[in-house]
Design a protein around this nucleic acid. Structure first.
Lengths: 220, 220, 220, 220
DNA sequence: CATGAATGAGGTTTCATTCAT
DNA sequence: CATGAATGAAACCTCATTCAT
């Protein structure tokens, strides 16, 4: 749960309490993602829950506390995905492509996560910075990339002036954009980036993009 | 102004009126960008303006009307930039790189625009879709790319399975991400993507990325 | 108005606004005095007012801001009374008695003031300490007493080991007690200290008390 | 316990129950004294107790029942002190001074009692009036004074137009004020009436005051 | 065009109290 | 006796919007 709040039940003891909190968090995730922090309504969240508004305050202390808990939850989920990626056996090219595709798959299927990240950026990451867990655990995505890039560089196939954080940035940018800018993009260019018919080619494209960039002879 | 609202002053007559409206729009742009649609306060906007709340309602009818006007204004500004890009004389490679860099330069120097686009996406582009001007005029960015890609494909240097909208997507994703996700990225990875020291290498990287992807032999 | 709050209309411009604020302050004074800070209800105050709850927040910002304004108002009123006391022409004895009686008269006819002081003490004077005006202006009551005591001491009729603050304490204690402890005293001892029939003798008694104490030969 | 409430455990049976109740009452006394009736929080009281909220309701029925029990407890304590005062052997002067000093000593060392009396007065002694015990037993303080005054009057040293209730009022006023108005007084006059350095002179002063007043020749 | 005053609906939060185990 | 979970009523406060001058 949130790292800095007190006066709230930190860890539920009964199984029923777990269900109540999960219920609240699930609904709250959707509401915050769909309406932004200020636009989300505690009343509305409560109404869609099995429980009452009072319980939100009982467990999370405040609207902000709830939002923080939501944030930590979605960041914990992506950590799980990242930890499930194993590329030790793959060539640097294949490893890079695998990581890119995994990120693409996660982001395009976790709309709420991407929206919450967008929202959090509007608020200058002020809430996220309060969560030691997120700060500490979510940077580990980089170590995986570092290892792959080092292998590629050593093998002479990867350029050495682009580091893991840069690569992560390229991959994240592409994957995030699909979800985060879906609606304005669709409105203006009349193409839904998440159209299932485009999924395969878009997944291939992100792999191409990152591999081509890293193996680009001209850039060296 | 917004395309569907009536009962509001559409075009200012006196020069003073123009200045008043510009003042309001400038402040409102900052407020909406910084706080989101629901988070922005009409009172706050009025307080920071040289005029009063009454004028906001006189000129823009409602908070939503003001937001729409703000949106149209920032989209008009990027249209200006796009129209200033001329790549007819350049090779397809150079042309692509020029367009990518121009987008990168625009986005990284127009934080409010990117933030407003993020916000608009949170609201499923519901406001943007009301603006015929934006929908009609802003898609023209594509024609420029189409022409370049066609030249590259005809020359045999570009792959032909990636169209102008895809390329625009890649470029926008990279450029948007720098601004839109700046804060969460900085918090977690301890790297400010807009750090002036990184500007040159990041501008080069976006060019590398799009050119490498389009000229990628392996992908063909 | 309160010294530290912002975002609230500090000084009303129209006469109507003055009336609205006075109306609110009058009712609020009664409500806070009757129910304590926590016990007073903003809703109730608003209901008894010509205006609405919203106006309370418009003018005073918060419940606390309103309470502070109430506090400053009643302290300003007693300052007025204190400034109206002139004892330069009187003998030290008579002057002391006059001051004591004036305090007695003020306190016994300003129940709300005494109650608010009681309430403020329950809250360890945390609000009062925020008001520079009260702190600066209300201590001046002492200078009047100092001058009188000095005269009495010099004349050899007053003891010199009791200073103005001590005398003020004795007088205030007696006068406050009549109002502040009226109800418990009446319940237990079956005597209403504010019974009009007792007024004269109690006014005389406070004068006797302070004069006798200061002229007490045995104490010297 | 309260005289009129039923359905609550009147007298604890086990020793453990006594300790639990005492624990609750001790904490509750502090909380009510520090925050007023409305300002005190049942949750907070429970949290500071070794037991739980359930126990408060089990033993005292309601917040009001608890408050009443607190009130009765502190009034019982001062009764004990009063019963310990013996002045039969002393001269009327010395007896008066002894009573005054004892009251002064009690009040200045029982802040919570004085605060609760202040609070109770804000509520027009509505709770206190429900307690037959307090009403019946606490008026007996007067009989002690009556006897002393009668002796003094008979001896010709005391005036006869000031009765025991008046004297009790003077003494209580002085002693209460030290505690009840400590904070506003300190804030405005920059003198802490309970400063240990002032204790002796202030104790002497209350004796001087009451004796001087009663033996005042001028007043007769 | 300008300004402070006003409004009502609805938002977030708190509190005493009770329930289930 | 003890504990965390739950509740509903009501508290405080905010916001977009309109009015009177």
């Amino acid at each position: 749960m949130s790292d800095q709040l007190s006066d709230v039940r930190e860890t539920p003891t009964t199984e029923r309490a777990v269900r109540t909190q999960d219920d609240i968090l699930r609904i709250a995730t959707a509401e915050f993602a769909a309406n932004g922090y200020a636009g989300a309504r505690v009343d509305e969240i409560a109404a869609r829950t099995r429980t009452t508004k009072r319980m939100i305050y009982y467990y999370f202390g405040s609207k902000e506390g709830l939002y923080l808990a939501v944030l930590e939850r979605v960041y914990a989920q992506i950590r799980q995905v990242e930890r499930g990626i194993h590329v030790e056996e793959l060539s640097p090219d294949a490893a890079l492509r695998t990581i890119a595709e995994a990120t693409y798959d996660h982001h395009t299927t976790h709309e709420a996560f991407i929206q919450l990240v967008s929202i959090e950026n509007i608020h200058r990451a002020e809430h996220l910075r309060q969560s030691e867990t997120i700060l500490r655990e979510n940077a580990t995505a980089i170590t995986l990339l570092e290892e792959v890039i080092e292998r590629g560089v050593r093998a002479g196939t990867f350029r050495d002036d682009v580091d893991a954080v840069d690569v992560h940035m390229m991959i994240s940018a592409y994957a995030c954009f699909h979800v985060a800018n879906r609606h304005t993009f669709a409105a203006i260019f009349e193409r839904d980036m998440l159209d299932p018919d485009l999924q395969d080619s878009h997944r291939r494209l992100i792999g191409d993009m990152v591999v081509a960039t890293m193996t680009d002879r001209a850039a060296r």
